[in-house]
Design a protein around this nucleic acid. Structure first.
Lengths: 188, 188, 188, 188
DNA sequence: GATGAATGAGCTTTCATTCAT
DNA sequence: TATGAATGAAAGCTCATTCAT
């Protein structure tokens, strides 16, 4: 059949989201993808390599979602608003993604250099936005990754808690949160 | 020898932080703690129970560290400053703690009701601080857990990235970050 | 290689007969069968399932051996003679079978309903023979299973003792024993 | 406290009857007997030795029960009747005993020479009864242990099946069974 | 390329036994 | 004598990986 590689990646992703990192076995991935166990090893060197690929595919997907409809000709706040909303909506409809990422980053698979390379590749426009704002004197005098972090990262943790049912969120709260994020990065 | 239970808990936490949830085996914990494998089972029913205990002990430890020297007679900002600094210093000197927490919460061990019970038990004074600030009209009109989250949670991710070498932090940056956190929760 | 399942079953039976129920470990079974430990779990869900299969396969084997050359057109005694001789010869050349059975039946694996279902499946013709003899007024007025028990069961214990060297048996003794069994079931 | 040895033996016996051979652990025996685990090793060399002692104690008990009220001045059949009834009643009210014996004898603990020594010690009068009957020309020309076996052994298997609920027995059936046993040993 | 049976190292857990107190 | 915490070998079982087909 066509595109076995894709089916294997999807199967792995789905299993991790459903059963957790430890619940994902190569045999299960093979069954879910409808291939033989040995076949996975034609497309991926080993389990670690498969997990790294799932991670990268997800990062790419997130970056695309984040930047959609962000127009660099618009005012800074407007760009920020779209970025933040994109982030929120992606996370709300892909809560699995977070559960995967957090485990991946805490695992020994995580590698700083590789991560930086991928951030550079996929999130360059995001960093440029924060860099630009700082140069205008609008944002705090912090490195772009830190500004991005202040603006968007705790949204990730928050939606994760929401997905688990630990926190109830609604439109009014979202507005407060976006405002809080904006105020956090703004220069005094 | 004295305090085997504590040594086992520490060994488990350290191994999870180093090797990830799946890298932690009971044999390794035993070796790291300097006891026989069977000995672990005198103190903990099984692996799950050990992991739950690590989680709860650390929550308690964090809560104690967070609240030390916080005087409710001081002005709000002063209290906030101490809370935030406590949090920062605890996290900087206990980076294992965070690497552990993130994996625990993403694992199937995590249980919302239990978590709420523990938050209630250990972090009540923290929540009361934020509640109080909101009632004074100083903080945003958000539930206390959310205010706490805005103020302190991304410090956790940040120090985690710092511990891994992904981000360089210094005193000037810390001041900016505390200011950002304060501005995030302040009512406009 | 061919017929791994059969080799595993034989290895298990033999080990139980030799080392007892507790002496039989999955590793030993694997070694005796010439396979890897993991291989056993391709054919049997777990240890319990393996033991149940050994039990059922042997029951079936015994039933086939018992009924071979029994012709229902022959006189009752002639049929009895063949049954009894079949039983004797099977037991003499399969002493493992008995050592296994006795332990299985005393273990928590044993389940009455399952056992009745299997007796029904495998030993129906044997029961019918005794039923028929009773209806003719030849055998005692006891349920067929009990008649079968009186006629054949202590042969099982006896060959077990013989296999262990506790009792010496010879042709003359066998004739006496068969006669004793026949007299035991005969109506007065 | 008094008579720890006895309490350990009883605890072991009870646990084997309840949980089976494999369910009995030294820790459990200690708890049931109300002693420390180490204490068991003051009275018994090891687990094997403990199990052998339980076995011997039981054999002695059975032999006493079997011979009670057997009067060698009575006619043979009367003596046989009492023996057989004693055996039946003991087995019906001590079904645990059987479950234990059968497992013990099938286990590697079983040792022919030791067993013969104990049979000699405890069951001598029983063998003498059968020997005497054979010398009178009343019983078959078989060794006494074999006659005893024909007369009593399948009663053991039968009551075991009864205890498990596989067979329903009543007074009328018992009479038939005793008659069957008597006819089995009688010379033609 | 694709298969999936087979492998065996390594997992969690138990328990007979020891020994410092 | 008696204790029971500690031990660690060995149990049942899983699963990433290989390889003959």
């Amino acid at each position: 059949m066509t595109n076995k590689r894709e089916r294997i990646l999807n199967a792995a992703e789905h299993l991790i989201a459903t059963l957790g990192f430890q619940g994902m076995s190569m045999q299960l991935v093979a069954r879910e993808a409808g291939v033989a166990t040995g076949t996975i090893y034609r497309y991926f060197k080993d389990k670690e390599s498969l997990l790294r690929c799932v991670h990268e595919e997800r990062l790419q997907e997130v970056s695309l979602a984040l930047l959609s409809n962000v127009d660099t000709h618009n005012p800074c706040f407007e760009q920020f608003r779209v970025l933040w909303q994109n982030c929120l909506h992606y996370l709300l409809s892909n809560s699995d993604c977070l559960l995967y990422r957090v485990q991946y980053e805490a695992s020994p698979l995580f590698n700083r250099e590789e991560e930086e390379r991928m951030d550079e590749r996929y999130f360059k426009p995001v960093f440029e936005f924060f860099e630009h704002g700082r140069e205008l004197g609008l944002f705090r005098d912090l490195p772009a990754p830190l500004l991005g972090f202040l603006a968007l990262e705790n949204l990730m943790l928050l939606t994760q808690k929401h997905a688990r049912g630990c926190i109830q969120l609604n439109e009014a709260v979202f507005d407060e949160l976006m405002d809080a994020a904006w105020n956090a990065i703004l220069k005094r």
